[in-house]
Design a protein around this nucleic acid. Structure first.
Lengths: 223, 223
DNA sequence: TTATCATCTAACTAACCGGTTAATTAAGGC
DNA sequence: GCCTTAATTAACCGGTTAGTTAGATGATAA
């Protein structure tokens, strides 16, 4: 008799955590599309089907909401990639599987990808979130992946490469393709985000990385 | 009989073309730092040491000024890289020299680099300048460089790579390092933009590209 | 029933920001 | 000298936007 009627899902008296989550999700979308400066709090509220004042009930201000969106995106990414790093594998396989998983994550999370890139650009002007995000999410991944690479170099499986050069290169190969897809579409006429093209890209990245990573004439053809 | 002489187009108060140039230069700086949405016309005017209304005397609106800044940056880049493509060289050398020159240009033009990256990101939400910029500046470079690569593949000097994969990879390796420098600085503690680090990066990029580009056991060690 | 508290909103405000207007200054042509 | 035109500015305007306020609403427990 007092069943919660399935009227407007959010709005008056919805599940509070659901409202908060809706706001965060909308914030990720809006910030990833327009950037911190271009995003409009009204647009976020509208997309979350919530009054704008509710944003300020759950988050201190626009900047904090942006920070929460960052933590959300980086947290997901970090969690996923940490899991990959935890697997018991020899360095060569581990790096390639890391790259493949990273590629898949970036490919399947367009909002996260854009949000992260936006923040990367904003870091140059001193974003107040840079320190936290870098230390909490990047540092651990960077350190551990760097360790794997040094291991591979030491064992002679890898060419004598510097992790501080290799890791940004690897990230660049994965991320940049998606970031520049709209431009590429205009230049080439093809849609770089079609499943076939994305699969092609993934293969090309793994080929490119393998060529740069492994010693010439590797004993085992890497997966 | 008397040829239509350009009737003293400029030259009243101050140097007018100097004012216009100052505005453009300030616009490049401001837009490259804050993006189209984040940039403030007042800040541009202040930086150009000019009244804000003068922006609107020389440019239709903020969007047009942004477009002019883009044309300025892309024009410089395009001009420089076209000159490199015009040199008479075998494919292998040409590609490596292209990469090296591109790297140097990006390294020495931080504002252009950021502005271009900003526009690349904005292209996703349909920038009104994408078509023009892509057709006028990217297309010619892309087509010609693609031709050089196909030539190298056909002659057996290069591995069987697809220009549509190789070119974005090459751009990614060059650009991404600088874009993510602030983050890297926070993560590693080193300054990735110091001359020594930049030189290291250039070597690493050329090594990385060479490894991916050339057939194994190349007859001549590429420069 | 009622007091309480977390959740949520309509309506408002102060500041900001892109763009305009009308006036002013310099210089050349006549 | 005066008119025209290009160059430049101070002052302003109106829409937008981040952020606030004062209160409503409903669930819960006493």
């Amino acid at each position: 008799m007092k069943l919660p009627e399935p009227k407007s899902p959010y709005g008056t008296r919805g599940r509070p955590d659901q409202s908060r989550a809706a706001i965060l999700k909308a914030a990720v979308r809006e910030f990833s599309k327009e950037g911190m400066a271009g995003a409009r709090t009204d647009a976020i509220a509208r997309a979350a089907r919530v009054n704008k004042a509710l944003l300020y009930y759950y988050f201190k201000d626009k900047e904090s909401l942006y920070g929460a969106a960052l933590d959300y995106a980086f947290g997901q990414l970090s969690e996923h990639m940490t899991e990959v790093l935890n697997r018991e594998l020899p360095p060569g396989e581990k790096v390639l599987i890391y790259v493949a998983n990273y590629f898949d994550f970036v490919a399947s999370h367009p909002h996260f990808r854009n949000l992260i890139q936006m923040e990367t650009m904003r870091a140059g002007q001193g974003s107040p979130h840079l320190q936290r995000v870098a230390k909490r999410y990047f540092m651990p991944l960077y350190t551990r992946l760097g360790g794997v690479i040094r291991q591979g170099v030491a064992s002679g499986e890898f060419r004598p490469i510097d992790p501080m050069q290799f890791i940004p290169s690897m990230v660049a190969l994965v991320v940049f393709y998606f970031i520049s897809a709209p431009v590429m579409k205009t230049v080439t006429g093809f849609d770089p985000l079609s499943p076939e093209r994305v699969a092609e890209r993934k293969a090309a990245v793994l080929d490119f990385v393998s060529a740069a990573l492994f010693q010439r004439l590797p004993k085992g053809e890497p997966k």
